[in-house]
């Protein structure tokens, strides 16, 4: 069994893990929506750029991206000397690509008919997007966003390699200090599950409830 003091020691890592995950989720949200919209309505050149961004972000390991920012780009952009910031930015930029895909699927599912209807009522395309399409697309996207947060909580553990004092790092310190080889990691794993599972589940249910309420598919 784990002692109370060891457990409290491990808990110190939880706020760091959560702040990396939530900040990178916010960054991904800010990037993801414009990219999704750009891929719907912008001219071809911009679409190609957005598509390239998504392909690159989905094709390289987020750990390599973190190392690139923290050790490589830090020479040019000093802010990346901070391992916490490098982790948040790497996870956030990748999450932007993932979230853009989630939103694109959601926007498509709301459908072109509503866009036509809004335009025929005298709305501009931008107004239609802002007031008709996006609010509905957001509801459809909720379950996907839930899985994305869960993914970020798990992948925030890569920041351990950069030396960030997150939950994984604390469990590793505890393993070295107590010479207990399974309890620290097992407890950390359970804490991760306790963080990922409720968030993903809650957003999934919230999404289904809103979908029923507004009669969305």
């Amino acid at each position: 069994m784990i002692t109370l003091s060891d457990f409290l020691f491990l808990l110190q890592g939880v706020p760091v893990t959560l702040s990396i995950s939530l900040l990178s989720f916010a960054l991904g949200f800010i990037i993801g929506i414009p990219i999704a919209v750009v891929r719907q309505i912008a001219p071809l050149e911009l679409t190609v750029v957005a598509e390239g961004y998504e392909k690159v972000m989905r094709g390289i390991p987020v750990l390599v991206f973190m190392l690139f920012l923290h050790f490589g780009l830090a020479g040019i952009v000093p802010i990346f000397k901070d391992s916490f910031i490098s982790s948040v930015v790497a996870l956030g930029l990748r999450s932007g690509a993932y979230q853009s895909q989630i939103f694109r699927g959601a926007i498509n599912s709301v459908g072109r008919d509503q866009m036509r209807a809004a335009i025929s009522l005298g709305m501009t395309r931008t107004q239609a997007f802002r007031h008709i399409i996006l609010p509905q697309a957001f509801i459809v996207a909720l379950p996907g966003l839930g899985s994305e947060i869960a993914l970020l909580i798990k992948d925030s553990s890569y920041s351990f390699v950069l030396g960030v004092l997150d939950l994984t790092k604390y469990s590793d310190i505890l393993r070295k200090a107590t010479k207990s080889f399974i309890i620290p990691y097992l407890t950390a794993a359970i804490l991760y599950i306790l963080m990922t599972f409720p968030i993903a589940n809650y957003l999934d249910r919230w999404g289904s409830r809103l979908k029923t309420k507004y009669g969305l598919r």
Partner: peptide, 23 residues
């Protein structure tokens, strides 16, 4: 399934690598 999908691969790797020889 919940255990392996809910926790990070890094923690799983560390756990198995260090604990199996001991256990």
């Amino acid at each position: 399934v919940e255990f392996f999908r809910g926790s990070p691969l890094i923690v799983q790797l560390l756990m198995f690598y260090f604990s199996i020889p001991i256990l």
